[in-house]
């Protein structure tokens, strides 16, 4: 599945740069030790933007939930319907979620609760994006 290209902006650039380098980095407030995804301009706990940094993750997670998309609004993905769209939670913090199409997992045969690891796929403009693959 080729996803739409991504044009990094100020808030998200560190995330996308890390993805291009094969690393999963998530925004963190060092004062609160609180991860944020999506990234924020100010920490949701201390309300300050002064201590926001980008933190390297292990790239390990769990399938929290999923649905199967049959009627996708995004034109570029319509040729791939139906497809899985899962929510992954990170091992570092189960409150932090990421989307995944779960490449390699049959449609609607998704093992909720299974362990996954991050991989990186190229989007339409060459920008890499984190994806997730079931381990084992």
């Amino acid at each position: 599945m080729v996803k739409q290209g991504v044009i990094p902006d100020d808030l998200s650039k560190p995330f996308w740069d890390a993805a291009n380098a094969g690393r999963l980095e998530i925004q963190n407030c060092s004062a609160c030790n609180r991860l944020h995804n999506p990234p924020v301009a100010a920490c949701t706990r201390c309300k300050s933007g002064d201590n926001l940094e980008w933190k390297l993750m292990s790239g390990k997670g769990t399938i929290y939930n999923y649905g199967v998309v049959y009627d996708c609004p995004v034109r570029l993905l319509q040729q791939d319907q139906p497809f899985n769209l899962a929510v992954i939670t990170l091992d570092e913090d189960s409150g932090i979620q990421m989307y995944s199409h779960l490449p390699g997992t049959p449609v609607d045969d998704v093992p909720v609760g299974a362990a996954v690891e991050v991989i990186f796929e190229e989007t339409a403009n060459g920008q890499k994006v984190p994806e997730w693959r079931v381990i084992g």
Binding site: K3, Q4, G5, V6, I7, P8, D9, L11, S12, K13, F15, W16, N37, P38, P39, N65, Y66, G67, V69, D71, C72, P73, V74, R75, L76, L77, F83, L85, V87, Y99, H101, T123, A124, N125, V129
Partner: peptide, 30 residues
């Protein structure tokens, strides 16, 4: 934006349609 070739980086990371192709009812479905 659903028909565009590329999306802004923050939009791609946000809830909603994003580059993952979630229909409007996806969140409720989950």
């Amino acid at each position: 934006i659903s028909a565009s070739e590329s999306v802004p980086g923050s939009f791609a990371m946000a809830p909603g349609r994003t580059l993952w192709g979630a229909p409007g009812s996806y969140g409720t479905a989950l």
